[in-house]
Measured scan of single mutants.
Amino acid sequence: METPSQRRATRSGAQASSTPLSPTRITRLQEKEDLQELNDRLAVYIDRVRSLETENAGLRLRITESEEVVSREVSGIKAAYEAELGDARKTLDSVAKERARLQLELSKVREEFKELKARNTKKEGDLIAAQARLKDLEALLNSKEAALSTALSEKRTLEGELHDLRGQVAKLEAALGEAKKQLQDEMLRRVDAENRLQTMKEELDFQKNIYSEELRETKRRHETRLVEIDNGKQREFESRLADALQELRAQHEDQVEQYKKELEKTYSAKLDNARQSAERNSNLVGAAHEELQQSRIRIDSLSAQLSQLQKQLAAKEAKLRDLEDSLARERDTSRRLLAEKEREMAEMRARMQQQLDEYQELLDIKLALDMEIHAYRKLLEGEEERLRLSPSPTSQRSRGRASSHSSQTQGGGSVTKKRKLESTESRSSFSQHARTSGRVAVEEVDEEGKFVRLRNKSNEDQSMGNWQIKRQNGDDPLLTYRFPPKFTLKAGQVVTIWAAGAGATHSPPTDL
C-alpha cells in the first residue's frame, strides 16, 4: 500500500520526466506537497488523539472507580493518622512548653550560679585577705619572738655582767678592808717605831748622862790618885790618861755616831717603808674607792637598764599575749569562714548537680520524644507519598520547624553540640559531646576521622611529652597517638594531629 507522500513523489517524478517545469511551478508544487504532507500528518495525529481519548475515557472510568475504592479505604486510615498526628502535635506542644519551662529554669539556675559564684569570689577574697593578715600577724609574732629572745639573751648577759660586777665589788671591798687593815698595821708599826726611836733617844741621852757622870767620876778619881802619885809620874800619867780618855772618848763617840747613824738609817728606812706603804695603801684605797664608785655607777646604770628591759619585756609579753589572742581570734574567724564557705560550696555543688541531673533527665526525655515524633513524621510522609496525598499546611510547618531545630547546652564543665543533616530522600543525625578539664581542650574532631585539633586555653605553657590521644569508632580497633617526649604546647597555641592517610605535612609544633 502506498502512502500519500509516496504517491506524491511518483506523480511529481512522472511529471518531471514528461515535461520540463518552470521554477515558479516547481515552488508551487513543492508547497502543495508540503501542505498535503501536513494534512496527512494532521489526520494521523487526529486519529491518534481520538484513539487516546477513547483510551482516556476508559481510564477515567477505571480511575473513578479506583478513586471511589481508595477514598473509602483512605478515609478511615486518614482519620486514624489525623488523630495520631493531633496527639503528636499536642505532645510536641507540651514538649515545647516543657522546653520553655526548662530554659526558664536553666536561666534561673544560671543566675543563681552567677550569684553564688560572686558570693564565692567575695568569700575567697575575704579568705585571701584573712590569710594575708594571718601571715602578717605570724610574721609580726615571729619578729616579736625574735626581739623577745634577743631581749632575754641581753637580760641574761646583763645579769651575768651584774653577777661578775658584784663579785668584783665584793673582791674590791675585801681588798679595801685588807688595805685598811694593812694601813692600820703600818700606822701601828710606825707609832711603835716612833716610840722605839724616842726610847732609843732617851736611852742615848741617858747613856750620855751616865757616860758624863762616869767621866766626871773617873776624872775625880784620877785627880785624887794624881795627888797621891808622884809628881814625876803625874805628867806621864796625865798624858797617858788624856790619851786613853781621848781614845776612849773617840771610840765611844764613834760607837755613838755609828749607832746613831744605824738607828737613823733604820728609822729612815722603816719610815720610808711605812710612808711608801701608806702611800701605796692610800693609792690602793683611792683606786679601790674610785673603782668602787665606778662599779656603783655601772651597777646603777645596769640596774636602770635592767629595769627598763624588764619593763620593755613586760610590755612585749603583754603585746605578745594580745597578738596571740588576736591571732587565735583571726584563726577561729578564718576557720569559721572557711567552714561556712566550704559548706556553702558543697550545698551549691549538690544543688547544681541535682539541677543538672534533672535537666539531663528532661533533655533525655525530650530527645526520646523528638525521635518518636521524627519516626511518626517519617511514617506519615511515607504513607502520604504512597497514597499520593498532598501534605497539610500544618504538617509542612511542623516539618520545617523540625528541620530547622537545633540545640546547644552548656553546664557543669560540659558542652553538647547537636547537628542535623537533612535531604529530600532520607534524614540522618549525629551528636558530638566534649568534656574538658585542665589546660588543654579538644577544640575540633573531624567527622571523617582525618584530624584532631587541641588548644592550650591557659596562659601558661603545658608540657605534653609522652601524652596519648586515643580514638575509637564503634567496634573498630583503638587508635592511639603518643606525643614526642619533649613536646610543649605554648599558651594559646593550637596543635593538629593528622591521620596517616590524610595527606598532611608533618610541621611541628602545629601539625603532627
Rank of each mutant, 00 (worst) to 15 (best):
E178W: 10
E178M: 12
E178L: 15
E178Q: 07
A179Q: 10
A179T: 14
A179D: 11
A179P: 00
A179S: 09
A179C: 03
K180N: 09
K180P: 00
K181E: 12
K181R: 14
Q182D: 14
Q182T: 14
Q182H: 09
Q184V: 14
Q184A: 13
Q184N: 03
Q184C: 03
Q184L: 11
D185P: 00
D185L: 11
D185E: 09
D185M: 14
D185T: 10
D185N: 10
D185V: 15
E186W: 12
E186F: 06
E186G: 11
E186A: 02
M187N: 03
M187R: 07
M187Q: 01
L188I: 10
L188K: 03
L188M: 03
R189E: 07
R189W: 09
R190N: 09
R190D: 01
R190Q: 07
V191H: 10
V191K: 00
V191C: 08
D192R: 02
D192C: 09
D192E: 02
D192K: 02
D192T: 12
A193R: 10
A193K: 11
A193G: 00
A193P: 01
A193L: 07
E194N: 10
N195R: 04
R196S: 02
R196I: 01
R196M: 01
L197W: 03
L197V: 07
L197F: 05
L197A: 12
Q198W: 01
Q198R: 03
T199N: 03
T199Q: 00
T199D: 02
M200H: 13
K201A: 05
E202S: 07
E202K: 02
E203I: 01
E203D: 01
L204K: 14
L204M: 15
L204F: 13
D205P: 02
D205N: 05
D205V: 04
D205G: 08
D205T: 12
D205C: 12
D205Y: 00
F206P: 01
F206W: 03
Q207N: 09
Q207M: 00
Q207I: 14
Q207A: 15
Q207T: 13
K208V: 00
K208I: 04
K208T: 01
N209L: 11
N209I: 00
N209E: 01
Y211R: 12
S212P: 07
S212Y: 09
S212E: 14
E213L: 07
E213M: 00
E213D: 08
L215E: 04
L215R: 14
L215Y: 01
L215S: 04
R216G: 08
R216M: 03
E217V: 13
T218F: 12
T218H: 04
T218E: 12
K219S: 06
K219E: 08
R220L: 08
R220T: 07
R220K: 13
R220D: 10
R220E: 12
R221D: 07
R221F: 15
H222F: 00
H222T: 11
H222R: 07
H222L: 09
H222Q: 11
H222S: 07
E223S: 06
E223T: 11
E223L: 13
E223W: 01
T224K: 07
T224H: 05
T224D: 13
T224N: 15
T224P: 01
T224L: 07
R225S: 13
R225A: 03
R225K: 05
R225N: 00
L226T: 13
L226Q: 10
L226G: 14
L226A: 08
L226Y: 08
V227H: 00
V227M: 15
V227N: 14
E228G: 05
E228V: 05
I229C: 04
I229Q: 02
D230N: 00
N231A: 09
N231P: 10
G232A: 05
G232K: 02
K233S: 08
K233Y: 02
K233W: 05
K233A: 15
K233I: 00
Q234S: 10
R235P: 03
R235S: 09
E236C: 08
E236H: 04
E236P: 06
E236L: 08
F237K: 04
F237A: 07
E238I: 10
E238A: 02
E238F: 10
S239A: 00
S239G: 07
S239N: 14
S239K: 05
R240N: 06
R240P: 01
L241Y: 09
L241H: 03
L241D: 07
L241C: 04
A242R: 06
A242V: 03
D243P: 00
D243S: 15
D243H: 15
A244R: 05
A244M: 02
A244H: 07
L245M: 01
L245F: 15
Q246C: 08
Q246F: 09
Q246R: 12
E247Y: 05
E247T: 11
L248K: 01
A250V: 11
A250E: 09
A250C: 15
A250Y: 14
A250M: 14
Q251T: 12
Q251R: 12
H252L: 01
H252P: 06
H252I: 11
H252V: 07
H252T: 12
H252Y: 02
E253W: 03
E253G: 11
E253A: 14
E253Q: 02
E253L: 05
D254Y: 08
D254I: 14
D254K: 09
Q255I: 06
Q255G: 14
V256F: 11
V256D: 04
E257M: 12
E257R: 12
Q258E: 15
K260Y: 01
K260N: 04
K260W: 03
K260T: 09
K261N: 10
K261G: 12
E262Q: 11
E262G: 15
E262W: 00
E262A: 01
E262C: 14
L263H: 02
L263R: 06
L263Q: 04
L263W: 04
E264I: 10
E264R: 06
E264Q: 13
E264Y: 04
K265P: 01
K265M: 12
T266M: 07
Y267C: 00
S268M: 08
S268Y: 10
S268W: 15
S268K: 06
S268H: 14
S268G: 12
S268A: 15
A269D: 08
K270H: 10
K270V: 07
L271W: 05
L271T: 01
D272H: 11
N273E: 14
N273P: 04
N273G: 00
N273S: 08
N273H: 09
